[in-house]
Each structure stands twice: as structure tokens, then as C-alpha cells.
Simulated scan of single mutants.
Amino acid sequence: MIKYRMIREGAAAAVAGLDFHEAMPASDGELALAHHPGYIARAAAGELSAAEQREIGFPWTPQMIERSRRSSGATIAACRAAFSEGVAVNLAGGTHHAYADRGAGFCVFNDSAIAARLMQAERRASRVAIVDLDVHQGNGTASILARDDSVFTLSLHGENNYPFEKERSDLDVALPDGVGDEAYLAALQDALATLQARFAPQLLIFLAGADPHEGDRLGKMKLSMQGLAARDQAVFSFARLHKIPVAVTMAGGYGRDIEQTVAVHIQTIRLASLHAAGWNNN
């Protein structure tokens, strides 16, 4: 959890002119765009079973639920801001393992699915793409949106990594252990071309996980800092080419050296700020 404070402090020091806003908590009605009301009520009231808490990965506390609401609220805010700024960043978020009726993998509520559907309800975008570049498949997101043709789910992930039983995204690219920069970036470019050809999104929600980094304890991939910069640039260049707003979330990162994980996230924020400058100059 300390990485989030470090990201906030590091981003403020590394990128001049950032505009920070406190995230507002997502309401029950907003959460219900992606989650069953019964699950929301039990989570809010502290009625999750011991087994449900184990699947999430940490015990229930009022602070845990408040943070989970605000993490979703921050992705909502980033999506709204992206339409005027070109890009906006949630300094947390990317909780893609949460299902409609349960949490999992350190994820309580699925911020991307919630925000995508709210942007549609607010008539900001009718076609939303979730570009999930965390090293783990976005199984909860894929499940929630499986029968929703208005949201495209794209996931590049480790073939042999968690979750070991995958869901079906609209486009899954399963990569082998040890994949490096060149092969990863080629797969990403192919995936983005397919996304545009099949869907032509009006908003991107980009899960910029730090866990494909070669120093990650859980990632099993071998992307360098330069490779991850090229990954982020590929997404931002795609968005600029097609004039698509981008909301970025941090998603996972479990480096042996926490400062390295934070550096990956700050690199993403710095590149996002450069993209915003280019967007606003067009």
C-alpha cells in the first residue's frame, strides 16, 4: 500500500504543473452499474464471509471499503477529465479482478467497468475500450462485460500467470514467460490495430500495470524501463492518432524493489502529461 503514497509524492516532484484532485467515493448507484446490489450492500456493511475476504486478499475494514469506493471514483473522475484534457490519471485503480458478485486478487470493486458504463450513461461515449496491460488477465472485467458489445475488453497478459482460469475478453493476447520488449511491443501494436478495426472506441481506459517489468516479483515478463515507456507511448500515440481521450489507472506492480515499481508508474504519468500537452496544442 505504501507505493500509492510514493507515487503521489514522486509524481508531484517529477512532473511540473500536475493538477491533483481528491477522489470522491463512488455511490451505491454507480457501483451497481457493474456489481450486484447484494454484494455492494454486504461489502459496505462488513458482512463478507471469511472465504470472500480471503479471495480478496485482505480483511474487511471500513477504511478498505472507503478506499475501494474512492478508487472507483477516481477512475470516474479521470474519464470525465480526459474528455477535456485528452488524458487524466487515477493514481490507483485498475482493480480488474473484481467480479459482479465478489472481489478477488486485491480488488473489491471493478473501477474500469463502473466508469465505462457511467460514461455511457452520461452520454460522453457510446463505445469504450478497456486496454488492460497489467501482467494479469482482467478476468473480472471480462466477466462483467462479456455480453456488452458497447465495451471492448483487450488484455495482454502472461499466459501462465494469475488468474489460472481465464475469462474470455473481446481480445486476449496471452504471452509466454520471459517475453521481452520487442515481442511484447509487436503484440501490442497488432492488438491496437485490431481494436481500431473492430471497434473504433470513443474512450480508452488504460490499465498501465508496472508488473510486466523485469524486476517484478509476480510478473514473469522481462520488459525493461525503456520497453514499458514504449508500451505507454504506443497507447498514447494510438489515442492521439484516432483522437480518443484516455483515462489511465496504475493497476499492479510488485517489484522486488518498491522504488523501481514506483519509477515505472511515475514514468507512465510523465508520458501521460506529455500526451496531454500535445492534445491541448492540437
Rank of each mutant, 00 (worst) to 15 (best):
34 A>K: 00
210 A>P: 09
127 R>H: 03
10 G>D: 11
213 H>L: 06
19 D>Q: 15
146 A>V: 12
39 Y>Q: 02
215 G>D: 06
235 V>M: 03
75 T>K: 00
236 F>W: 04
80 R>K: 14
79 C>S: 06
254 Y>M: 03
193 A>C: 11
36 H>S: 14
34 A>F: 01
93 G>A: 07
251 A>G: 05
149 D>T: 11
142 A>F: 04
69 R>D: 05
192 L>W: 06
175 L>T: 00
218 L>I: 13
86 G>M: 02
196 Q>N: 15
128 V>C: 11
4 Y>L: 13
49 S>R: 08
210 A>E: 02
162 Y>F: 15
147 R>L: 05
109 F>E: 04
38 G>S: 07
144 I>Q: 00
100 A>P: 07
80 R>M: 06
61 T>D: 12
177 D>W: 09
154 L>H: 02
166 K>C: 10
172 D>Q: 05
186 A>P: 08
223 L>V: 10
122 E>K: 12
132 D>F: 12
137 Q>F: 08
236 F>T: 01
227 G>M: 06
29 G>M: 06
121 A>Q: 14
259 E>I: 04
180 G>M: 06
220 K>E: 01
282 N>Y: 04
46 G>V: 11
168 R>A: 15
230 A>Y: 06
254 Y>I: 10
64 M>V: 04
214 E>H: 15
124 R>E: 03
164 F>A: 07
125 A>L: 07
274 L>R: 04
268 T>I: 09
65 I>L: 12
50 A>Q: 15
38 G>F: 06
227 G>D: 02
41 A>D: 15
